[in-house]
Simulated scan of single mutants.
Amino acid sequence: MITLYHNDMSVCAAKVRTALAEKELKWNGIHLNLRAGDAQKPEYIKLNPNAVVPTFVHDDKTIIESTVICEYIDDTWPEIPLKPLDSWGRAQMRLWTKQLDEGVHAAVGALSFCIAFRHQWLEKSGEDRARWLAGIPQADRRQRSQSILELGLASPYFEPAVRRYEKLFDDFEATLGHRPWLAGDMFSLADVGYAPYLARLRHLGLNILFDRHPLVLGWSQRVASRPSVQDGINRWFNPKYLSLFEEKRAEAKAAVDKILR
């Protein structure tokens, strides 16, 4: 019934896997190798014109955009709710997930590529890099990717991405002073949405954000301890990526600490 086109280290795919795990749903996975250009192949573009993961197929209905997919999952299988029961709580949840789609996700992409992923592409031929960039459908995303690929930590996209997370963590801290989860008293799609980003920031060496925000630290630990997060995120960590993160973490941490201090 359910087919998920995904990638092991994609934060957006991890959101959907976590929602599926919370619902205890079985699914068929088709894993895409993003570095091999699987998401840019014509047969996949027919499913997802944005050339990104995840893509969710249920009963021959295709859905893209991870935030939309997570809401579809909760609406279709409501027995274990992931949306607050009251309208105010649902509004709060959507305000948090809206931020992901309107800048937070792009910021973690910039950080991930500036710090680590660019090195994977630099090992490839110039022809392969040019083909990958040309296959990015959105002009702004293509321009951002080229800048990050060429300049790394010196890219003009790096510091604004760090600052965006500084602001986000300040907002997290203020909210968590009033309630245990982002949207209220229950674990919701808001917490599901941010779970893989919390893990990624740790991998990239942005520990200073957690150190400065004790309520966020406690919340992130509660999120990480959930079985659905273990199943949807942690068990998919790719050892090659973890080694790359570890190799680049010290340089990244120094750069981030310099910006925030």
Rank of each mutant, 00 (worst) to 15 (best):
H31Q: 12
T76Q: 15
V68S: 13
E43N: 14
V53F: 01
D59M: 05
R17V: 01
N48V: 07
K41A: 03
R35W: 13
E43M: 11
T62M: 04
T67H: 11
G37C: 04
D60A: 15
T76F: 15
P54L: 10
E22D: 11
Q40G: 11
I45K: 06
I73L: 15
K61C: 02
L20N: 12
W77E: 04
L47R: 14
K61T: 09
K26R: 11
Y72P: 11
E22Y: 07
E22I: 00
T67R: 09
H31R: 07
A39K: 00
I69R: 06
R17T: 06
V53R: 01
T76M: 15
T55L: 09
W27S: 04
V52H: 09
K46A: 14
K61E: 08
T55Y: 09
Q40T: 13
D59T: 08
P49C: 12
E65W: 02
E71D: 06
A51H: 15
I64R: 01
D59P: 14
P78N: 12
V53W: 05
W77P: 13
I73W: 10
L20P: 06
K15E: 00
A36T: 05
D59N: 15
G29K: 02
V16H: 06
K46D: 07
I64C: 08
N28T: 14
G29C: 02
I63C: 10
T18C: 07
T76P: 14
I69A: 05
L20Q: 08
E22P: 09
L20H: 04
I45G: 12
A39E: 03
E71H: 12
W77T: 00
A13C: 07
D74C: 10
A39H: 06
D75A: 15
A13W: 10
K41L: 07
K26P: 06
T18M: 10
K61H: 08
E24C: 10
L47K: 14
K23N: 05
G37E: 03
A14T: 06
P42T: 14
P54Q: 11
E43I: 04
T62W: 04
D59G: 15
D38Y: 03
A19K: 13
V16W: 10
L32H: 03
A39D: 00
P54W: 09
H58R: 00
V16Q: 04
I45P: 15
V57W: 03
Q40D: 05
K61Q: 14
H31W: 02
I30W: 00
A21N: 09
L32N: 01
S66M: 01
A39I: 00
T62L: 02
I69M: 08
K61N: 12
A51D: 01
I64L: 03
D60I: 11
W27D: 11
K61F: 13
T76L: 15
A13R: 01
N28H: 14
I64E: 05
K26V: 01
I45C: 10
A21M: 00
W27M: 02
Q40F: 15
G29T: 01
N48M: 05
Y72H: 13
I30G: 01
F56Y: 14
I69T: 09
D75M: 14
D59C: 13
V52M: 12
I45F: 02
A19N: 07
